[in-house]
Simulated assay, not measured.
Amino acid sequence: MPLPSVAEMIKAMLDSNPAFEGVFFTAVRTTRIFCRPTCPARKPLPENVQFYATAEEALTAGFRPCKRCQPLSVKGEAPEVVQQALKLLDHHPRVRWTDENLQEKGLDPLTLRRWFKQHHGMTFHTYARARRLGLALGQIQQGEKLDAAAFDHGYESESGFRAALEHTTGRPSAHARTLNVLHYTQILTPLGPMVAMAEDAGLVLLEFTDRPALPDEVQELREKHAYTPLPGDHKHLQHVREELSLYFSGKLQQFTVPLCMPSTPFQQKVWEALQQIPYGTTTTYGKLAESLGQGGASRAVGRANGQNRIAIVVPCHRVMGADGTLTGYGGGQARKQKLLELEKQQVAALLLPT
C-alpha cells in the first residue's frame, strides 16, 4: 500500500499521532528496531529512520520488533491481567469485586486501576459497577421489580441501587423502566481501537477512539436522543466485532449488522446513500448530492457525511473531493487512505485470473 509522504510520517512519529496507527511502521537503522508511530520510547533522529507499510515488511528487511510498543500486537490489546479480569466479569457479572477478591485471584488491583483509567476513563471497580448497573436495568426493563434486580446484581439495599442509578444516569430511578441504555465496548482493529455503541434496535456508533468529535457525539446521544451509555456487551456489538475482523482480513465487503442512526431526515438520506456506494469505489460530494436530487447542496451533504457516527460500516471514507483529493475524515486522512487501499486491493485480487 502507498505510504504517506515522508514529511507527514516524520511529523506523525514525532507527535506520536494515534491517527497513523497501522498506517506505517518506523524502522531505525542504527538500532535495527522497528516501532509503531506512537511508541513512547525516545524519538530517533529523522535521518536514521525508514518507513514500512506493514510489520511484515520491516521484519523481512531485518528489523526487530520494539519491546516497548510491541508492533506485532494489536494496538490497545489488553495485557493478560486485564483479560483475566474481564473474563471474571463475564463469568461472574453480579459479583461485587474488591481489591482483596482480585488479589485472591492473583490479579494486581493497581495494574487494573491504571489500565482501565487509561483506556476507559474509569477505574476497574467503577467499570464493574457500571456493568452490573446495566445488567440490572436490563432485568428491570424485562419486567423484574426494582428491588429484586438490585439484590440480584450485588446491591445491598434498594436505596443504594437507586442512588447509584441516579448518579450514573442523571435521571430519577422512577424512570428505570424507560431508560434507553446504550451498551458500549472497545473493538481493536489494525488501524487502532474503536468504540462501538449499540441498543436493541442496532449499532448506534462506531468510531476510532481518538476521533476529536467523539465526546460531542456521545454528549449528543445523551442529551438529544436520551441515551444512557453503560459499558457491557450486546449481540450487535459481537456482530460488528466479527464483521470488522472479516473486513480487515479482506473477507467481507458488505456489513449486515443492524443499524440504528437517530438523525434528521436529511442526515438519514445522506447516510443511506453512503451505504449504496459499492465496495472498492469512490464518489464525490457533488455526485452524492446529485444522487439525492440535491445537486446544489454538496456542502450540506459534506456536512452530513462528516456527522456520520458509524465509521467503516457506513462508508463515509468512500467520498472524495471534486478534484479526487481525500479531503476530511474524522478518523484521519491516513486511515481513510488505508481503508480505500484495502478495498481496492481486494477488488483487484478478485479480478485476477485463476
Score class of each variant (00 low, 15 high):
99 D>K: 03
233 D>T: 10
181 V>G: 04
331 G>Y: 09
81 V>N: 12
296 G>S: 06
29 R>H: 11
262 P>D: 14
226 A>P: 07
104 E>R: 14
277 I>F: 09
70 Q>L: 06
101 N>W: 11
100 E>L: 13
219 Q>C: 14
92 H>T: 09
261 M>D: 03
340 L>G: 02
203 L>A: 02
257 V>M: 04
102 L>G: 01
146 L>T: 11
120 H>D: 02
7 A>R: 15
341 E>L: 12
332 G>N: 03
146 L>W: 12
278 P>D: 04
322 A>E: 15
63 F>R: 00
52 Y>S: 08
68 R>L: 10
191 L>M: 01
224 K>G: 05
310 I>V: 08
186 Q>L: 12
294 Q>K: 13
147 D>T: 01
340 L>P: 09
71 P>S: 00
62 G>D: 06
125 H>Q: 06
308 N>M: 10
160 G>Y: 00
223 E>Y: 09
105 K>V: 02
274 L>Y: 09
230 L>E: 03
190 P>W: 03
284 T>C: 06
76 G>P: 04
138 G>A: 05
200 D>V: 12
283 T>E: 02
153 H>N: 10
25 F>Y: 06
37 P>W: 08
258 P>T: 05
285 Y>N: 04
58 A>C: 13
130 A>K: 13
66 C>D: 07
143 G>D: 00
125 H>A: 15
287 K>Q: 15
255 F>T: 02
56 E>D: 12
103 Q>N: 09
344 K>N: 01
113 R>S: 04
270 V>S: 10
231 P>Q: 00
172 P>K: 11
242 E>C: 14
199 E>S: 15
88 L>K: 05
223 E>G: 14
250 G>F: 07
1 M>N: 01
32 R>D: 12
147 D>C: 15
131 R>V: 08
344 K>A: 03
284 T>R: 07
282 T>L: 11
297 A>N: 05
181 V>W: 00
20 F>D: 02
218 V>D: 05
109 P>S: 11
5 S>Q: 02
174 A>L: 14
274 L>K: 02
181 V>C: 03
142 Q>W: 00
